[in-house]
Simulated assay, not measured.
Amino acid sequence: MSYLKDREDAWIKEQIKLDKVREKEIMKQLQHAIDSIQTEIDANWDRFSNGQQITISEARKRAAKMDVERFQRKAKEYVENKDFSPQANKELKIYNLVMRVSRLELVKAQIGLELVTLFDGLDKWGYSQLSSAAKAEYLRQAGILGSTLDKDYAKKVSSIVNASFKSREYASFSDNIWQNFTEMKADLEKLLTKAITQGKNPKTVASELAKFLKPNQENIRYKLNRLMITEMTAIQTDIQKQSYLDAEIEDYDYIAEPSACEICKNVAKGGPYKVAKMQKGVNAPYMHAHCHCSTAPRINRESLEKALKKRGL
């Protein structure tokens, strides 16, 4: 068991390194979307203010009191009479501002499109990453167990990944991705509306947008990375269980990651466990979000370990 545990410990450390690579890709895609959103805001900012020293909030108040039809007639008279006194110009600009309040909704829609592009890309990228990891884990287990690859292994891998993506009894990876889309869209709309109504400078908005990218436990970057790590562990556990069943292995051990929490350490101490009763969150990873733990088959055949060493596995 010691040899298999050492192998699994080394594998866990490698997975942690790969998680950092995937986090960088998430960051890259988020940064691109944030840059596009900022560009959209900058391009439309002057249209919001229309050169007037009043906020959108004030404009809405004035709009509520304004008889639009009467004001339109008045504006037409200004133009026909070429009466462009300072007061006339001011009133016309305020009127235009009121009419352009709806521009805020248009920019929100444009931001929504940027986010759809972002999260659609993350959804597809995530599926690709999980599929590749599942296939790699199936091949790794075949090497560990000395098994001959099932000719239908690709279908088994695809079935497990698709179940994770679409058919799980709890929220799937894809569902969670789009839940994050909904949350980020709502947060951005609140930020934009607040900035406009308070007359903030676009640079101030840029600093607010940057908060979505900072590494803290509440922003979108953290949530997406946590989701990716957790789902990766879940799928690898599913592949491990399927491999043990295929090889008719009855027992397995829980292998806690190097920085494991007390929950995972206690589960690791409680083994071995029955493969037939292997269940994520109970006696198999993931036990919690961000879990990097793994499992190892409980095999009493010394010849298998000797064969693995001989093959350099």
Rank of each mutant, 00 (worst) to 15 (best):
E58K: 14
K155V: 01
T295W: 02
T193Y: 06
L188M: 10
M1N: 11
E208A: 13
E80L: 14
E105L: 15
T39Q: 09
S158D: 11
I34Q: 00
E58P: 09
S128D: 14
L118G: 01
E25P: 00
D67I: 04
Q87W: 10
H290Q: 08
T193G: 03
A247C: 13
V267I: 14
A154K: 12
M66W: 12
L191R: 02
A133D: 06
I220D: 02
F84N: 05
V282A: 11
S159L: 08
V275I: 06
L188Q: 01
A256E: 09
Y78M: 12
H288D: 07
K241V: 04
K280W: 05
N96L: 12
N300A: 11
K24E: 10
T230E: 03
R100I: 02
L118C: 04
T117Q: 14
A206C: 06
F119I: 00
A186S: 12
L118F: 03
A260K: 08
Y254Q: 07
Q29P: 01
K223G: 01
Q141H: 13
F84W: 15
R100Y: 13
Y127L: 06
E80N: 15
L304V: 09
I41R: 02
Q38M: 05
L122C: 04
Q29F: 02
D253I: 03
G126Y: 04
S207T: 15
N266H: 13
A284R: 03
L245A: 15
A133V: 01
K211P: 03
N219P: 05
L313Q: 13
I54M: 15
C293G: 10
V275D: 05
V275G: 06
N89M: 14
D67G: 04
Y273T: 02
I34P: 00
A276C: 00
L139V: 13
R100F: 13
K185M: 01
D238A: 15
F119D: 02
Q242L: 09
M66V: 04
I34W: 02
H290V: 00
R62G: 05
E208K: 08
S164F: 08
H290M: 11
K241P: 02
V116C: 02
A59V: 04
M99F: 13
T233I: 01
D238V: 05
L97R: 09
E169A: 12
Y138D: 06
S132C: 03
E257T: 07
S259E: 11
L92P: 04
A186V: 04
D123Q: 05
V205M: 08
S294N: 08
Q236C: 03
S159D: 13
A136F: 06
I111H: 03
K274T: 07
E262L: 15
V205H: 08
S167Q: 14
C293T: 03
D150Q: 10
Q72Y: 09
E218H: 12
N81D: 13
E23K: 12
K269I: 00
T237H: 05
A64E: 14
R226A: 06
E105F: 08
G312W: 15
V79A: 12
K65D: 13
R73W: 10
E69Y: 11
D42M: 01
T233A: 15
M228F: 06
T230H: 10
N81Y: 09
N283A: 09
E257K: 03
G281I: 01
I54E: 10
D238T: 07
G199N: 01
